[in-house]
């Protein structure tokens, strides 16, 4: 398996994650919205997997082995800019 649920709400992505991992990842993240995704052992990931990360923005841990993921995708998964958080005055 290239995707595993470790103990303590941690999801690991390893090696080359194929398109099928997207559904599993989605399932895990919907069940545990606060889960952390460790992708430090990830060599590559299908767009479907990356799409789930982009849509749900879990906290990711580690630097993936793939230079593409590290350089171009990781910045897209930064915690959301907090500039909208100040709008909570009325809420």
């Amino acid at each position: 398996m290239t995707i595993r649920l470790r103990s303590g709400d941690e999801i690991a992505l390893e090696d080359a994650c194929p398109v099928e991992d997207a559904a599993t990842l989605h399932e895990y993240l919907v069940a545990a919205p606060g889960a952390i995704v460790d992708w430090s052992a990830c060599d590559s990931a299908h767009t479907a997997v990356i799409q789930i990360l982009i849509a749900l923005r879990p906290t990711v841990r580690g630097h993936p082995r793939s230079p593409f993921l590290r350089t171009f995708i990781a910045p897209l998964l930064q915690p959301r800019q907090l500039d909208s958080a100040v709008g909570s005055g009325r809420g």
Binding site: I50, A55, F72, I73, L76
Partner: peptide, 25 residues
């Protein structure tokens, strides 16, 4: 390649309703 940005084609639905096999980026 120098930089990438991604935007959803249609706004993301609530987490549970995302279709993992539909490309929405």
């Amino acid at each position: 390649l120098l930089a990438i940005e991604v935007e959803p084609v249609v706004p993301w639905p609530p987490a549970g309703e995302i279709q993992p096999y539909d490309c929405n980026v």
